[in-house]
Design a protein around this nucleic acid. Structure first.
Lengths: 233, 233
DNA sequence: TATATGTGATTGAACGTTTAGTCAACATCA
DNA sequence: TGATGTTGACTAAACGTTCAATCACATATA
């Protein structure tokens, strides 16, 4: 295939082997060979700016309207700069999901103490706060927005699998500690953890996609009463 | 605003008042004035074909790649025919969500009997069947795919609110009947219903977007054991 | 019965716009 | 000097949408 350019003929590049990039799933993320100042996520300053610009674009316009141009509008750099760091829109979005998942997990890992009952309550309150701050609403909304990608793209699915596995493990450990300390009744910690997690996720999801505020409160209070009367010995 | 067309100048039509259409939210759905053969959804034969084509396109390609061209590829009609029935892509998608919600609700309303415990179990099994048929997987997947639209578009949000309200009511009635018949312990049926619904939805959602098959089984069995030991007197 | 008229359904070809992605050139700095 | 970061101009393809023209078929007129 050839395309006209100012009267010249140009060969369409099948694979631009000049640029350094590493495979991530089926798409690729470029990674400069020389070391740069990187944050905890392994991102250079510009890459992090791109992530935040993507966040803003996604929150402001939703997935359907999300485009590279829109992201660069939110960015203090040109559109083509994005392609210097990511091979494609898909590669960018996958990296962005990773970035978002990391930030989501940061909000949870805080304080796993020695009081199983309070710890469990803390986990629930963290994921289902009484009043949702704008920051948290955005974080959760992005996960809802990107989750349909997990239906077909395995690389996305893996990210969501990881979130749930991590959350489940945290809850399971807390339940197990409670059983060992005779605070909770004997039960299968793994089963109970999946059960609590499913309830939390269902409530979280409904909260964002429906107008049934009372349902959130009801589900949350029923979850607490389940823990009080069913789990606590 | 004016646009060139074959050397002529044409006035951009502000509103084509010739065509009959009725307002639905912020967008519009055209509705022919003359009566046609319509199905239970109030759709003509062609409209129903369009709905099924949209279903196929969405399942095959996902929301991100969904276009009018793609829908017409699945349809035995030209692309422009779609615009004879729907004013815009948004109007089409909104109508399609309504169509899907109706079909989803049809799968539930069957058999509300006189045995609260079995009825409750039947509801759970209907929404979380042991082996998910391809048909149900597609139906649930479409809801997951369209749900991010509910984050920002109120008309979509209302549809999802209605699904949950309907499901919640069904569960609540079953729980209330169980309490009245002394099969279930005294509890707030509304609270319990929201709790059960949240767990079901969370499990359903995780099942579609993660690879944690065991989690689905665990959550489901914990839900059953909750009902057995907590709800049943 | 044959023909004209009207109306909705359907079409293909176009419209202007936006998209993801490319590239040669320039900037910066070690 | 050479590698990296950055840019704006550019492309082909795809997008949603419009529209004049045609088709199929019912009813009215002769």
């Amino acid at each position: 295939m050839m395309s006209k350019l100012n009267g010249l003929v140009r060969i369409a590049p099948v694979q631009s082997s000049k640029k350094p990039h590493c495979a991530v799933g089926q798409s690729t993320i470029r990674r400069p060979t020389v070391c740069m100042t990187r944050d905890s996520d392994g991102l250079s300053a510009t890459e992090e700016e791109i992530m935040h610009a993507t966040h803003r674009a996604l929150v402001n316009s939703g997935y359907a309207e999300l485009s590279i141009s829109l992201i660069s509008d939110e960015l203090d750099k040109a559109k083509s700069t994005i392609y210097h760091y990511y091979d494609s829109k898909d590669a960018l979005l996958l990296r962005f999901l990773r970035f978002t998942v990391n930030r989501f997990e940061e909000t949870i890992n805080t304080s796993i103490g020695d009081h199983p009952k309070e710890d469990l309550n803390h986990i629930i309150t963290t994921l289902l706060p009484c009043d949702l701050t704008e920051e948290k609403r955005q974080l959760h909304s992005i996960l809802v927005t990107l989750s349909p990608q997990a239906l077909e793209q395995e690389v996305f699915r893996e990210q969501f699998t990881e979130i749930d596995a991590r959350l489940s493990t945290i809850i399971e450990k807390t339940v197990r500690r409670g059983i060992d300390a005779n605070v909770f009744r004997a039960a299968d910690p793994a089963h109970v953890a999946e059960y609590i997690l499913a309830t939390i996720k269902g409530t979280m999801y409904s909260r964002l996609t429906t107008n049934r505020e009372a349902a959130t409160v009801a589900a949350k209070s029923s979850l607490s009463s389940y823990i009080d009367s069913h789990l606590i010995s």
